[in-house]
């Protein structure tokens, strides 16, 4: 019996690659973990933006979040480093090859506790890195201790109450010099995808704190990082729209209520005001909005701050155009005459 099956042409992006080409290994995280949803959005964003998988470096520290680079983009080089120190590894890697895109995945423990020093200096340098915090307020792999982003008064399953204030990684990032700062929620597909795509278009440090509930240790009543809490308390500062550079940008928007930011690659980030004093070019209003919302017990999401003018770290160093890693010997080893000249001066 012979049948003819007509296969539909698989959907491809502008590079001719399928979503399949952006997939990774099978996740080993818990079913329902927010991190898995974030991995899915990362895949979507890289696919839709048409990033060549081989041109991306994925880096992470240690923890549940830091395992997730194994679950997307198998065709990209990946580096699962040590706890809290991914920023330094990413810095070295990008100095070695500034032509690469780099995506770092960290967690709230990895960033706000053990790694807070490196996190701070990463923000200062404005390294061209997309830095994602998969933020659930607890340590998962060690079975549910509070992290430093847990809100004061929030409760563990065991009944332990957190009595120390949370570190607001977004406020820190804005103050320290990151040039693209936002917060999202793993359950907010539309907003997260738009923010990730804009992040890919940005040249400089992108700091995205993504609330990503831990279904095993921090999704109960009394947690401020649960799905329920986020569904009830998420408050967007703006509606995030993104038009990539390879698409028609003639879609109309209301200039009075929308900030249109032209990104480095020509894409457009469109932020429609939902808060009265929203201004993504002002650090002061960004931090003020974050503080005020937090005081009200709400979780502010959206893009808080964008600066497309500040030079990135690799720009500041005025490096040659090609990757330093593969410069030929003629360009990295000075000549015999140079050595003779130096020796003569030392005589």
């Amino acid at each position: 019996m012979a049948t003819t099956v007509t296969k539909p042409n698989p959907k491809v992006n502008r590079l001719g690659l399928q979503v399949l080409d952006y997939r990774g290994g099978k996740t080993t995280l818990c079913a329902g973990c927010g991190h898995n949803a974030i991995s899915e959005r990362i895949i979507d964003a890289l696919y839709e933006m048409g990033v060549q998988p081989e041109r991306l470096m994925k880096l992470s520290g240690i923890g549940c979040s830091s395992k997730s680079p194994a679950y997307f983009l198998s065709r990209a080089h990946s580096f699962n480093s040590v706890h809290g120190r991914m920023p330094s590894v990413a810095t070295g890697a990008l100095l070695a090859n500034k032509t690469m895109k780099a995506l770092g995945v960290s967690g709230d423990g990895d960033t706000a506790s053990i790694g807070v020093g490196q996190f701070i200096h990463l923000m200062r340098r404005n390294l061209p890195l997309i830095y994602i915090i998969e933020d659930n307020g607890v340590y998962g792999l060690t079975k549910g201790q509070f992290s430093a982003t847990a809100d004061i008064g929030s409760k563990l399953k065991t009944g332990v109450i957190n009595d120390l204030p949370a570190i607001d990684t977004c406020a820190l990032a804005v103050q320290l010099g990151a040039t693209f700062v936002g917060r999202s929620f793993s359950g907010d597909k539309k907003q997260l995808l738009a923010m990730l795509k804009a992040a890919i278009a940005h040249q400089g440090t992108v700091m995205l704190d993504i609330i990503s509930p831990c279904v095993t240790f921090n999704d109960h009543e009394g947690s401020t990082k649960s799905y329920k809490y986020m569904q009830e308390h998420e408050e967007a500062i703006s509606e995030v729209g993104f038009v990539p550079h390879f698409e028609d940008i003639s879609i109309e928007y209301d200039a009075g209520s929308t900030y249109d930011v032209t990104m480095h690659d020509g894409s457009h980030l469109r932020l429609r005001k939902l808060h009265e004093d929203f201004n993504p070019t002002s650090r002061v209003t960004a931090v003020k909005a974050l503080m005020e919302t937090h005081e009200r017990g709400e979780v502010l999401t959206g893009v808080f701050y964008v600066d497309t003018q500040k030079p990135s770290f690799t720009d500041l160093l005025n490096l040659v155009d090609e990757p330093l890693a593969t410069l030929p010997e003629e360009r990295t080893r000075p000549s015999k005459q140079v050595l003779q000249e130096i020796m003569t001066r030392l005589q």
Binding site: V82, R85, G92, A93, A96, Q118
Partner: peptide, 11 residues
């Protein structure tokens, strides 16, 4: 950390 990141990337 930077040394290893750079070494990994070939510098």
């Amino acid at each position: 950390g930077m040394v290893l990141g750079a070494g990994w990337a070939g510098a």
